[in-house]
């Protein structure tokens, strides 16, 4: 089953293979290139995430009780980071997203890899993803 926990475990495993920052960055860049892009009409001011130094748009749609996220950013590393979050949270149940414990971020050392401003952006992204789930629940 592709639960949030399972996917996190997979990502942690992926990151364990990397020997240095460069491999991690290359991986993030690859993920960034493969990100499921947001449709143009959703690239609105409302969907822009505040707190990110590069611009990030995030859109969420509900399908069969699950949420599907799409996103875009003008910086590729940021795209890579949001791609990881989408891999974990997209197509999950509302409840699970809202209560998700995203401890894998600390395990893979993603925050340490990012400058403080980017780490703040990461927090903002997660918050926005959870807020979407909450909004759909009500």
């Amino acid at each position: 089953m592709n639960t949030i926990q399972n996917i996190q475990a997979e990502i942690v495993e992926d990151f364990e293979m990397f020997e240095d920052w460069m491999q991690k960055y290359e991986y993030l860049i690859e993920l960034g290139k493969e990100l499921a892009l947001i449709e143009k009409q959703y690239k609105t001011e409302d969907n822009l995430i505040k707190g990110c130094q590069s611009r990030v748009w995030l859109h969420a749609e509900k399908q069969d009780g699950k949420i599907i996220y799409t996103a875009d950013s003008d910086a590729i590393m940021t795209k890579g980071i949001i791609a990881i979050l989408i891999r974990v949270l997209s197509e999950q149940k509302l409840e699970d997203i809202i209560h998700a414990d995203l401890s894998f971020i600390d395990t893979i050392g993603l925050k340490e890899q990012l400058s403080v401003t980017r780490a703040n952006g990461l927090v903002s992204m997660i918050k926005k993803m959870k807020l979407y789930a909450l909004a759909y629940q009500n």
């Binding site: 960055y25 590069s54 003008d74 910086a75 590729i76 590393m77 400058s115 980017r118």
Partner: peptide, 21 residues
């Protein structure tokens, strides 16, 4: 078309402080 943040992040890992933005 590279974003300056991407460049700044990578050179930072190599010990180089430049400003981006």
């Amino acid at each position: 078309k590279l974003h300056p943040y991407d460049i700044g992040m990578i050179v930072d890992k190599m010990g180089i402080a430049i400003r981006t933005g």
